[in-house]
Amino acid sequence: MSLFKRNNSPYWWIKITHNGRTIQRSSKTTDEAKALEYHDKLKASLWDQERLGIKPRYSWQEAVIRYLAETSGKASTISDKTHLRWLDKYLNSLMLDEISRDVIEKVMAKRMADKVANSTVNRTMEIVRAVLRKAAFDWEWLERVPRVRMLPEPKRRIRWITKDEAGRLIRALPSHLSAMVRFSLETGLRKANVTGLQWSQVDLARRTAWIHPDQAKARKAIAVPLSVAAIEVIREQIGKHPTHVFSYKGNSVTQVNTKTWHATLKKVGITDFRWHDLRHTWASWHVQSGTPLHVLQELGGWESVEMVRKYAHLSSDHLTQYVDRFSTIQAGEGSRATFWLHSVK
């Protein structure tokens, strides 16, 4: 028999080892006698499961441990852990079959009470849904998954800057940030791929760089063709750091959203602009220059063309021929225009 107290909980906790499986959960009582009774009932239940073939019950805590083990390669693992830590105080003591829709709604209300954006609430609830779905469909720990409601999120507009604005920003930034901005606008690489770029990932002779699968958001390798301007930026960094392309005072760069970055944006009059918007700017410039969407998809390492269509409205060149074909106004000399009707054959 094992009863113990946790520093962050007023309740007695139990710990049982059964057939090599360690079960640890809250008794949800401060009464030691009742906790002992719960302990004994749980042991009897485990015996029933083994001898009578009754399906065992699993806890949220057990599900989280297995979920993290199976998804350790996800690009969003760090973010997932942040959300799971927040969820711990509400779900840690529950069995999976105790997590009903009502419980989920109460957890959502707690998250909303933190005064965070709807998108943040949704990311937290998506983790709840992901763990429960794995428990039900992959591990068969759960008979059914309760519905997890999502809050409406405003559709964010594509924020990009003009080449004139980019020039002002580049000139005003310190040299190490300026170099990374120039490189981002030439390659469209995400922040982590720029700050983490190593010399071993660059071949100047072949004018290419590459992002390894474990560094890419879609977990697929990305070939990065280097423009003349991108090569110029890289050559400027030679000799500054032994392993990383971009550095600051001899150290590799890990953070770019600094006070200097925000102060410089304000100084040059650029508002509502994040570092990731450099990628939007790169994509927008490409589309405006006539780069086909399927080519942009490959250049940017997007998983599907649907993810690139948000930039399609920035170019209408491919639609011009259809507009001209339909037009009922024929321009004449000077400012004169004559109306004509298409003949119907």
Rank of each mutant, 00 (worst) to 15 (best):
N92D: 14
L293H: 05
I329E: 12
D317N: 12
F326M: 07
D88Q: 12
H313N: 07
T162Y: 13
N257T: 08
S93V: 12
K28D: 13
R144K: 15
W139V: 06
M307E: 04
T77P: 00
W139R: 02
D88H: 11
E153G: 05
Y11N: 15
Y311L: 13
E32I: 12
W139I: 02
P225M: 11
S315M: 09
T29L: 07
D114I: 03
E140Y: 07
D317M: 14
H39D: 09
A172F: 09
W13D: 11
A44I: 03
K89P: 05
S284A: 15
N118C: 01
V233E: 05
N92I: 10
S45A: 14
P154S: 10
T264G: 05
R21F: 13
I222L: 11
H276W: 02
K41L: 08
P154C: 01
H176N: 13
R336P: 04
F183S: 06
P242T: 08
L3D: 06
V256F: 04
V202A: 12
R309N: 08
K191E: 11
R336K: 14
K81Q: 15
I16C: 08
R57A: 01
S100W: 02
W139E: 01
Q24N: 10
T208C: 06
W210T: 06
H262G: 00
L42S: 01
R133D: 11
E98R: 09
H18W: 15
T29R: 04
N7R: 08
H286R: 15
K155Y: 03
D203S: 14
D164L: 13
L226A: 07
H212K: 12
V64L: 00
L68N: 13
L265H: 14
Y58T: 01
S76W: 00
H83A: 11
K163E: 14
T320W: 08
E298H: 09
